[in-house]
Design a protein around this nucleic acid. Structure first.
Lengths: 255, 255
DNA sequence: CAAGTGGCTTGATCTGGGTTAATGCATTCT
DNA sequence: AGAATGCATTAACCCAGATCAAGCCACTTG
C-alpha cells in the first residue's frame, strides 16, 4: 500500500475500494491510468452545460458541485463532491453535459481520458463493477434528494442534508460524523434544498437553538446525532457506507 | 430480426438497442438470458424497501413506479417506468432495496438473476456499456426531477412532467409526442411533483384553459407543443433520445 | 485605517400552494 | 336499480416559506 501512496490517483482507489476489494494488478492498473493534473479556484466552472468533455474528472482534494440554472435564473444544486469522487463520468460517457460542474473550494483535479476509463472498466470487471456501483450510489443520493426537496419541510430538509454530509465526509476521511467543516454558504445550502438563503438561516438557527447542532463559521458540530437524524428523517442506508471501515482509514490521510 | 421477435425479453433489446448497436451474438445472448415471467395487478408491490432481491426485473408491458414514504406518511415518486425498462438494476446490484417499486397498471414482468445480468455486462462490453449508459440516463432524469421539484413553480412542474412523458412514451412506441395515454391519477402526479392532488388539478385545468393541452379521462393531447415546452422549461437533451428513431419503431409493436 | 465586499442575521409583509371539505361523476359490485 | 367506490373538481380559508429591506460582522484591499 505504501508504495502506491504517492500517485495522484490514490483518492480514486480509496473511494472505489469501498465498493470492491482489488488485487494488486487492479490497483496498479487504476493508478497507472493516463491523466493530467489541474487545479481550480473557487467558483471556477469545471464542465459547462452543453460542453462535450472527452475526459473524466477526478476530484483529488477540495469540494465541487453539480448544478443547473432553470428558467427564471434560479439555481438547483444536484450534488456535492469531495475527495475521491469521479465527478464527471456521466457527462463524459454520455457525450454532452446536461448540467454544470463547478468548484466549491480550491480543487485539485485529475483528468482521465474517457476512453481509458471505459477500457479499464471492461478489461477489469472488479474495477468496472466498482465504478458502476459508484454511479448507482450517486443515483440513490439523487433519489433521496428528490424526496428531500419534494416531501420534507424546511427544517427536516436541512437536518437531513447535515446528516448526509456528516456521514459522507467521515467516509471520505474529512471529518467525524459529529463534527466537520462545511465550506458552503447558506445560499448554496439553499440551492441544495430548494429554499431561500434567508430561510436556511432561520432553520439552522432553529436547529442550533434546539440544541441539535452548534455552528462556528463554516464548521458544524452535531451535538445530538440521534435527535438530528430523527429531525431529518435520515436513514443512512442509501449511502451504502460499509459498516466497518478499515481501521487505517480512520486516520485523515488526505487533507 | 423476425426470428427473435417472440422472446419475452424483446422489449429489453429494444430499449438497450437505443444506446448501442448490437451484433447478432449480442442480441442472441441478451434474449437467451435466463428468466422467469410474472404478471402483477395494479398497485401490487414488486420490490419492497428493505428487501434483498436476487434478480433484476424487466418491465415487458404496463407501467410501474419507484417511490418512498417519508416520515409523516407522505409519498415521493422517483420515476415512472414503461415497456423495456430494467426497473431494478439498482436494488439488485446494490443488494438491499432502499425504495419501493410498485405496479401502476397491470404489468408483465420478467425476472432475470442478477448474476446473469452482471455476467453478460462484463462478457459483452457492448451490452455492458448500453446498460451502464441506461443507468446514467436514469440518473439524468433524477437530476431533472430534483430541479423540477426544487426550483420550478407548480404549473411549470406539471408542464415539464407532461413533456417528459410525451417524449419517453413516444420513444417507447407507446404514443405520439402530442397525444398519449397516461395511466396515472392526479394524486400520483402530485407525488411525482411534490404537490397535492388538489393543486395538480388546478394546474392541469389551467394548462387546459390556456389551450396548451386537452384531456379526456387519462388521455393527454398536447395542442401546442412549443408553448407547453416553454411553459415547462423543458429541454429534451437530458433524455438522450436518439434524434432519428428507426422508422420501424414508429409502429406500435407492444401494447 | 477607511471603504468595500460577501455573507450572516433579523423583522415585516405577502403569496403560492396546502388543507379541508363538499359535490359530481363514472365504474363496478350486489 | 341502488349502493359503494374511486377520482376529478371546486370553493373557502390558512400557513410555511418567499420576498423585501435593513443592519451587522469579519474579511480584504487601497
Amino acid at each position: 500500500m505504501s508504495d502506491s501512496a504517492q500517485s495522484p490517483l490514490e483518492p480514486m482507489l480509496r473511494k472505489l475500494g469501498k465498493w470492491a476489494s482489488f488485487n494488486h494488478e487492479d490497483r496498479a492498473a487504476l493508478l497507472a491510468l493516463p491523466h493530467s493534473l489541474a487545479t481550480m479556484a473557487p467558483n471556477q466552472i469545471i464542465v459547462r452545460e452543453g460542453a462535450q468533455p472527452s475526459s473524466t474528472c477526478l476530484l483529488r482534494s477540495g469540494f465541487a458541485y453539480r448544478h443547473k440554472i432553470v428558467s427564471g435564473g434560479m439555481r438547483q444544486i444536484f450534488s456535492i463532491h469531495m475527495s475521491g469522487d469521479i465527478i464527471d463520468l456521466q457527462n463524459s460517457l454520455l457525450g454532452t453535459a446536461d448540467h454544470n460542474v463547478q468548484a466549491l473550494t480550491h480543487c485539485d483535479l485529475a483528468f482521465i481520458p474517457s476512453d481509458a476509463v471505459r477500457r479499464i472498466a471492461f478489461d477489469r470487471p472488479t474495477i468496472g463493477r466498482a465504478m458502476w456501483y459508484d454511479t448507482l450510489v450517486d443515483a440513490a443520493i439523487f433519489r433521496e434528494w428528490i424526496a428531500n426537496v419534494g416531501r420534507r419541510d424546511a427544517k427536516t430538509r436541512m437536518a437531513h442534508l447535515l446528516c448526509e454530509f456528516a456521514l459522507r465526509l467521515e467516509a471520505a476521511g474529512l471529518g467525524r460524523h459529529n463534527a466537520y467543516e462545511l465550506p458552503m454558504t447558506q445560499e448554496q445550502l439553499a440551492d441544495c434544498t430548494g429554499l431561500t438563503s434567508v430561510h436556511v438561516n432561520r432553520m439552522l438557527r432553529a436547529l442550533d437553538r434546539e440544541g441539535l447542532i452548534s455552528r462556528t463559521k463554516r464548521s458544524v458540530i452535531i451535538d445530538d446525532w440521534k435527535k438530528l437524524a430523527r429531525a431529518g428523517d435520515f436513514e443512512s442506508n442509501y449511502l451504502r457506507i460499509p459498516l466497518a471501515s478499515p481501521p487505517a482509514t480512520n486516520e485523515a490521510e488526505y487533507d
